[in-house]
C-alpha cells in the first residue's frame, strides 16, 4: 500500500467537498478498494471514507410502498432488516462471508459495478432508483458496462430506492474460489410485469434477459422459458467457466428463480 491521506466527513456535503480533488477517492466498505490498494494497484492520494455519514445509513419504508436503503448500509444490515423482502434479503445474506457483509455497503457495490457483484442484478431487476448527492438515476441507465456507471467524478450514492415486488428471488451460482456470482439471476415479479436481471455472466456487466421477461409476462411459469436459450457470444470466459456454460447457467438459474418466486 502507498501512503495516502484519510478523511472521514460526517455529512454528505463535506464528503462531496472532500472529493473535489482529482486524486481523491470515495471509500465505502473497502471490500474492493482496500485489497486493490494493498496490492499497490490503486494509488489514491486521499481516501474519503463514507462510513461516518449517518444520513447515508439505514433502511426505511417510503409512503409509496418502496423502500430506501442508505448507500452506506452494510450487506449484513440489509440481510437482517425487517423492511427488506425475500429476494433482496437472500441476496445480501449470500454476499461474501460474514466479515465482508459487516463492512461492504450497497452504495460501494453499485458504484463499483463489478460484473460479478450481486447488487447490480437486484437494482436492475427491481427497477431501482439510485439517488446521489445531485440527482436520481434509474437503474436502467445507471449500469453502463463492466465497472462503468452513470456516476460522475465525485458523485456519491446517497441511497437506493427499491420498488417492492409481489415476489422475487435471487439465484446465485457461485464462482467456486471467490464465491462471487459466476451467474446470478434476480427475478422480480410485479404481477403485471416480470423483470429478469443477470449478473456474473456477461462481458457487458449486468443485463436484462428480455426474451425471458417477455415469455414470463405471457405466463409466469418455468415452462415458459424451457425452449429459450441465450446467446453465449458475449458471455465471460475464464478458468472457471466457458461462455457456453455461463449461458447455460443463466437459463438454469432463471428457471430456479421462477420456481422460487412462484
Amino acid at each position: 500500500m502507498y501512503n495516502f491521506e484519510f478523511k472521514q466527513p460526517k455529512t454528505i456535503s463535506d464528503a462531496v467537498n472532500a472529493l473535489v480533488s482529482d486524486e481523491a477517492q470515495a471509500l465505502g466498505g473497502g471490500q474492493t478498494l482496500i485489497p486493490t490498494m494493498k496490492q499497490r494497484l490503486a494509488n489514491p492520494s486521499t481516501l474519503v471514507s463514507l462510513t461516518a455519514i449517518s444520513e447515508m445509513k439505514g433502511i426505511c419504508k417510503n409512503d409509496d410502498g418502496s423502500i430506501s436503503i442508505g448507500g452506506g448500509t452494510t450487506h449484513a444490515d440489509v440481510a437482517s432488516h425487517s423492511d427488506t423482502f425475500f429476494g433482496l434479503k437472500t441476496l445480501a445474506e449470500k454476499i461474501g462471508d460474514a466479515a465482508v457483509r459487516n463492512r461492504g455497503t450497497i452504495g460501494g457495490s453499485l458504484a463499483n459495478n463489478d460484473p460479478a457483484a450481486c447488487y447490480p442484478a437486484a437494482a436492475l431487476s427491481l427497477g431501482a432508483t439510485i439517488v446521489t448527492n445531485s440527482r436520481e438515476i434509474s437503474a436502467d441507465v445507471f449500469f453502463q458496462g463492466m465497472f462503468d456507471t452513470a456516476l460522475e467524478e465525485g458523485e456519491i450514492i446517497v441511497s437506493v430506492k427499491f420498488p417492492v415486488p409481489s415476489s422475487s428471488s435471487y439465484q446465485k451460482f457461485v464462482q467456486p474460489a471467490s464465491r462471487f456470482a459466476m451467474v446470478g439471476v434476480f427475478l422480480s415479479n410485479f404481477g403485471n410485469e416480470t423483470r429478469v436481471a443477470v449478473t456474473g455472466a456477461s462481458e457487458g456487466g449486468v443485463f436484462r434477459w428480455s426474451e425471458a421477461e417477455a415469455a414470463l409476462n405471457k405466463t409466469f411459469s418455468d415452462n415458459s422459458i424451457k425452449d429459450l436459450s441465450i446467446d453465449h457470444k458475449d458471455m465471460i470466459k475464464d478458468i472457471h467457466a466457458s461462455k457456453e456454460y455461463r449461458a447455460h447457467l443463466v437459463k438454469v438459474m432463471t428457471k430456479r428463480a421462477v420456481v422460487s418466486a412462484s
Binding site: 467456486p176 474460489a177 471467490s178 475464464d238 478458468i239
Partner: peptide
Amino acid sequence: ISASYMDYT
C-alpha cells in the same frame, strides 16, 4: 492465472 484466492479454490 490462479494467483490468489479469487481464482484458486
